[in-house]
């Protein structure tokens, strides 16, 4: 393993690629993670730090390096370069009992009964089978699958099987839950249920990291995000800070189409139908308003909208990555 020993403490947590830890210990610290496959860099210097109890999203289009990053964080593969620590441990397998992982490619033994599948996943994390079965029954009943306790996995619908696998990820009561594209393949109702489940985990102090190519999930759930594109992480930090990285957007609707007032608009202004969109000038709204009034623009409506995570993503990762993200998101929805 080509991981060098570096002192991470107090570095990432206070640096650019961090969300405020507020005194919380870090569940995950990673710095300079690099992984190449067949000479191609799949991940190129990823820095991430996640405080305990946070919901953290890894946001990027397909093929950006999300899964490889998660696999390195979990110790499924080792980085070529860089350092990763999970709850302070260099080797995540050493604290396997504290981690729950739902891979992107969902997998269960088709001939296993639901209760056995969940208990087996718990056993992999050190939970005795007997206790695992007991908890599996409780979990299945709590999540509306009490009728399926003794059903084989092959007899379940896809959504039910995904729920069973998620319960298997949680049965040993991990302190860190890592979910790779957890929303893919779920309908809107189950996506909503999963969001609630993730929030409930965080309320219980569990750290949740998930990867997604759907911005809304990250925006709704996450305290922090890492934006990843082309194997690099151009931004990792709080969602709020990401949104603050680009100025608020002004949306203006006027009666007049031409006039001297146009000279008061910034050069980045775009027209979209009847509306004009442009970033809020650094000088503020007052001088702009004055110019529009004096220039007889005939203001019909004017709103100032704080930038969303999507705008932040476009600004940080670039138009091409944003287009790919959008395409992936639409592809998944279809």
């Amino acid at each position: 393993m080509a991981v060098s020993e570096q002192n991470l403490s107090g570095n990432l947590a206070e640096g650019f690629n961090a969300i405020p830890a507020d005194g919380r210990p870090l569940a995950i610290e990673a710095r300079g993670l690099v992984k190449s496959f067949d000479g191609t860099r799949a991940v190129d210097g990823v820095d991430i730090s996640v405080p305990e109890g946070a919901i953290y999203g890894i946001l990027g289009p397909n093929g950006a390096g999300k899964t490889t990053t998660l696999r390195m964080l979990l110790g499924i593969i080792d980085p070529d370069e860089g350092v990763r620590r999970v709850f302070g441990h260099d080797r995540p397998h050493d604290i396997g009992r504290l981690i729950g992982y739902l891979p992107e490619e969902r997998g269960l033994y088709p001939s296993m009964k639901c209760v056995e599948a969940i208990a087996f996943m718990g056993a992999l994390r050190g939970l005795p089978l007997k206790e695992g079965r007991k908890r599996a029954v409780e979990l299945l009943e709590r999540h509306g699958l009490g009728h399926a306790i003794d059903r084989q996995i092959r007899q379940l619908s896809k959504g039910m099987a995904q729920t069973v696998q998620l319960l298997g990820t949680l049965v040993h009561q991990p302190r860190l839950v890592v979910l790779d594209e957890p929303f893919s393949g779920l309908d809107a109702i189950n996506q909503g249920k999963l969001e609630m489940m993730i929030r409930a985990l965080a309320d219980d102090g569990v750290t949740v990291i998930f990867s997604t190519h759907v911005i809304h999930h990250a925006e709704r759930l996450c305290e922090g995000v890492a934006i990843i594109a082309g194997g690099k992480v151009p931004y990792a930090g709080s969602v709020e800070a990401a949104r603050d990285r680009i100025p608020a957007q002004v949306r203006l609707e006027t009666r007049a189409r031409e006039g001297a007032w146009l000279s008061f608009l910034p050069p980045e202004t775009r027209r979209n139908g009847d509306f004009l969109h442009f970033p809020l000038p650094e000088s503020g709204i007052e001088p702009l308003l004055k110019g529009l009034i004096e220039g007889e623009a005939g203001i019909l409506s004017l709103s100032i909208e704080r930038a969303g995570l999507h705008d932040a993503f476009v600004a940080i990762a670039g138009e091409a990555a944003a287009r790919q993200l959008q395409a992936d998101s639409e592809g998944a929805a279809a």
């Binding site: 979990l74 499924i76 981690i99 992982y101 891979p103 997998g107 996943m121 994390r125």
Partner: peptide, 13 residues
């Protein structure tokens, strides 16, 4: 084929 190998690989060496 069952896609379970990654769960195993993540949980134990």
């Amino acid at each position: 084929g069952n896609k379970i190998i990654e769960i195993l690989a993540a949980a134990i060496p």
